[in-house]
Amino acid sequence: MPSSPVDAHTGRVVIGGSTGFMGRYLAPRYRAAGREVVTISRSGADIAWGDQAAIDSAVDGAALVIGLAGKSVNCRYTPENRAEIFRSRLETTASLRTAILHADAPPALWVNSSTATIYRHAEDRPMTESTGEIGTGFSVDVATSWERALFADDLPATRRVALRSAIVLGHGGVLGPLRGLARLGLGGAAHDGRWPISRARRAAGTGHEFAARRGSQRFSWIHVEDVARVIDLLERTPSLEGPVNASSPNPVDNTTFMATVRRVLGARIGPPLPRWMLELGAIGIRTETELVLKSRWVLPEKLEAAGFTFSYPTLEGAVRESHDRPD
């Protein structure tokens, strides 16, 4: 269950994109701390996207705005899905920015989702906020456009943070599908390999190029409770702004990640999955192999400098909690 924030601030919290994995975790957490929470989503929330007057009213006088909205990237990168991935992020971020621009009492802090995928495929060294290299391709274009939308316009009274989150673990999320695969004996490491990339996919930047070998691609991750606690830290620490990597200080490789999932679930069998099998499987379940084959090696430089202590610093503890498996 979500914990209550430690030394929480007071004041209204506005959560845009409240029906997703993170929003469903954060809203009850803030309410448990006694804070007023206003949610925005396409449906099932206090306010619907598109009702700019209501969004303006909610943001005016709020203490914290959190932007989480965006179509999931766990889909095939068709032209229609690519357009919706961009639109869902840029329009909702612009809506929050407009509300802050119009506010008589603007929020002190606006935390908006970004992604650690903004960095290049990295097998040689980790990416930090100060030394990380921005990558190329569709996913990176989404991330950089999202951050530009966040930092556009002059908002002198509002500090802005782009939360470059690694893969978020917790009850549900990415571990849900992996649980079923592991129990079927399909929880092995994802092995990259050569695969034809069409001219159209190459032009769109959606074709993954063969790079890491034998499951060596890095897997950066963070537990959902630590994401919530990072936002608590951001409220308490006025010096933190701009891009912030939300990632455990202990990333692993794909082989270790999948072995940990199998061990926690008691799934003994998990042979490696070659690229051809991954590609066919991705077509079948309507997703993209980049999500498991890109090497994301990210370290939380700013958080560690600010003295942040992770509740789940190691992968095994995070996976066990996510599956209700005690040590």
Rank of each mutant, 00 (worst) to 15 (best):
P5E: 00
T10G: 10
I15P: 10
R24I: 03
R35K: 06
E36D: 00
Q52H: 04
A58I: 01
V59Y: 05
G61F: 07
I66G: 09
G67N: 15
L68G: 03
G70F: 02
S72G: 00
S72A: 10
L96C: 05
A103I: 00
A105P: 00
P107V: 02
A108R: 13
V111M: 01
I118S: 04
Y119N: 04
H121L: 11
A122S: 14
E123L: 15
D124C: 04
P126Q: 08
F138A: 00
S145Q: 12
L150Y: 15
D154I: 11
L155W: 05
R159T: 03
S165W: 07
I167E: 10
V174N: 13
G180R: 12
L181I: 09
L181V: 15
G185S: 12
L186N: 06
L186E: 02
G187R: 03
A189L: 15
I197Y: 01
R202V: 00
T206N: 02
H208W: 09
R214D: 15
V224Y: 02
R229L: 06
D232V: 10
N245D: 05
A246S: 13
A246W: 06
S247M: 05
F257D: 11
L278M: 09
E290G: 13
V292H: 04
L293H: 05
L303A: 11
T309S: 11
T309Q: 14
G317C: 04
V319S: 04
R320A: 02
